[in-house]
Design a protein around this nucleic acid. Structure first.
Lengths: 342, 342
DNA sequence: GATGTCGTCTAAACCGGTTTAAAGCGTGTC
DNA sequence: GACACGCTTTAAACCGGTTTAGACGACATC
């Protein structure tokens, strides 16, 4: 009994045909008599033949894999909770197509570009997901230069040859603001993400716009970098204002949960003295005390849609349309309530 | 100007030698005159030649990639905070060797085995990391059957042909207990992880042993599944005991932070009424209120060591020794203090 | 009967490397 | 001058698929 796995040549000799015929049959190409096709498929089946990725990769010049580059700033793995589920969604698509997901973690800066270059030059992947989009994102031109197919997670601000998978953050942000306004808040502050990121500014402009629609102005806007440490700092600054806000809307849950801790450490009771809202609906949001009012997206679906869209591009379809997902929705928990009486 | 990247044949013709000679030179194999080697390397350099992974994969039957299968129970991505840094550590090694990391997310159960099978049969990877080791872990035999090299993250309980990368949790757990005992606690409870996991039971037996050394018995032991929801549930049960504990040691930070919320929701003040300790030193641990006393490991180093060790196995070295990392150490924050006066 | 056409199938080249058997060559020995 | 020997190099096979040019036979057409 041969331990080696059967090759296409084994199938050919068992079916009594040539290698070429086998290849045709297995790829469902026309030009073979039906009887021959059946015979070949039967032989392949009996032998338990499975295609060799490596050989296929070489001859068709494809990797049968997609790539995700994660930029790891000193200690931030992007928006953590997001990625776990996103990757699971991607995987759910790839596994049905025999593709693999290649992950690359790079530190921010120079190395980032090198990361994409490596992925491309090594021919590891057929396309990449572009996450944490930045304004005037240099990676778009880089990928064009490298001839690497891609999809952007959310819509870039400049022109882009790649389809975008978009999950509109704005309705969720708007809903948070409306919720707070309805509770009676008038001094609402925002802790934004780094302005370099498209989704960070999208959330903060939506915040400002929603407030304006209610005839209000932001009590203050602080900027953080999505880390817990930044959430603490920003919160302290807000609470130290002469007229501190009665509600704070954070651009992500991590900063919000840290902000919650900072407010409590400052002796405030949430939500009685201060309302707090996050964004992401990460696992802990539900379980901290008080439960965090936040905005829930569906990262798994996001991953699915991104993988499907990227594969369309990789498969050479032209004019692949953007994929739109259901917008993020408000989840009201205990961290928001009416403002304290003046 | 040819857009195609140069192949080994281009290098050969430019250097005026045969393909074989080029291959020898590039791989630093003996049997070529030094002058020839220099000539070839110069030619390769001028042409900007880079080896084709695909061709190399086919001819040497290696994937030049390592794999990580993450089992995703309904909603738990293993011990989240751990993986981000672990992967970064792995990557730091792989990037220097031109290897890639293939990630596969599977749902628990049947699909898990299929995940490893796919990785092996598709020839995607040369070895895998075995994480979240379970007692009598069936994956060890599976990998042996598949002939797939591996390293286990921490030591399995049965015999294993694979080297282990170990980061001893016990000293950290012991330190937590000693810390609480020194503060004066005598009724200390534990929220353990699922007993199926080796590291979960390692932590709980270390907990019991450390207590015993102090002449104490556990006030109670609850079992959770590492999720925040489980942390809440276990905490509620502990607080509902006729004689509730004055301190709770959790098997991970996620359960601890959720437990902290539960205790606060129950009207307790931490640490005055109840001390709480976690395990992992995840980012949020420092920033919740009060800051969480916990145990810090170094997942980045863990990833590095795991990658190095796995590569030794993949490279065919025999008797690769286990890699031992510095044990996890206690980080004392505000969530632990002397017990309330009886 | 010669020619053309269609449908089916094969042989061989190709993807870009690695590896093996053997050839070429200069030198030393007798 | 013939021979063996070691060092260097090459030609060709190989990894396992895909793809192209063309062979072959059956059949229709004139």
């Amino acid at each position: 009994m041969s331990k080696q796995r059967p090759t296409i040549a084994d199938v050919a000799s068992r079916a009594g045909v040539s290698k070429g015929a086998v290849s045709f049959a297995l790829n469902g190409r026309p030009g073979l008599a039906q009887a021959t096709v059946d015979k070949i498929l039967a032989a392949a089946d009996e032998l338990g033949w499975r295609p060799s990725n490596r050989a296929r990769s070489l001859s068709v010049s494809k990797a049968f894999a997609l790539g995700l580059v994660i930029t790891r700033d000193p200690d931030v793995l992007s928006s953590d909770p997001f990625f776990s589920a996103f990757i699971a969604g991607v995987e759910s698509v790839l596994s049905t197509r025999g593709q693999a997901l290649v992950l690359q973690v790079v530190t921010a800066g120079e190395e980032e570009e090198a990361g994409y270059r490596r992925l491309a030059q090594d021919g590891r992947v057929d396309g990449v997901f572009l996450s944490d989009l930045r304004h005037e994102d240099p990676r778009i031109d880089l990928l064009v230069e490298l001839g690497m197919p891609a999809v952007t997670l959310n819509r870039p601000d400049g022109t882009s040859p790649f389809p975008a998978v978009v999950l509109d953050d704005r309705p969720g942000t708007r809903a948070v603001v409306e919720h707070l306004v309805a509770l009676g808040h008038t001094r609402i502050a925002h802790v934004a993400g780094p302005p370099a990121f498209v989704h960070a500014t999208a959330r903060s402009t939506a915040f400002v716009a929603a407030l304006a629609d209610a005839g209000l102005q932001p009590a203050a806007i602080e900027t953080g970098d999505f880390t817990a440490a930044a959430g603490i700092e920003a919160t302290r600054r807000l609470l130290a204002l002469p007229e501190p806000p009665t509600a704070i809307v954070y651009a992500n849950d991590r900063m919000a949960i840290a902000g919650l801790g900072a407010a409590q450490a400052a002796g405030l009771t949430v939500p009685d003295d201060l309302s707090i809202a996050g964004f992401d609906d990460s696992e802990l949001a539900e379980y901290v005390h008080p439960g965090l009012t936040t905005v829930r997206a569906d990262p798994f679906r996001f991953g699915e849609a991104a993988a499907q869209t990227l594969n369309q591009v990789v498969d050479g379809e032209s004019d692949v349309p953007d994929a739109e997902l259901a917008p993020a929705e408000l989840v009201v928990r205990r961290s928001t309530a009416a403002p304290p009486p003046a």
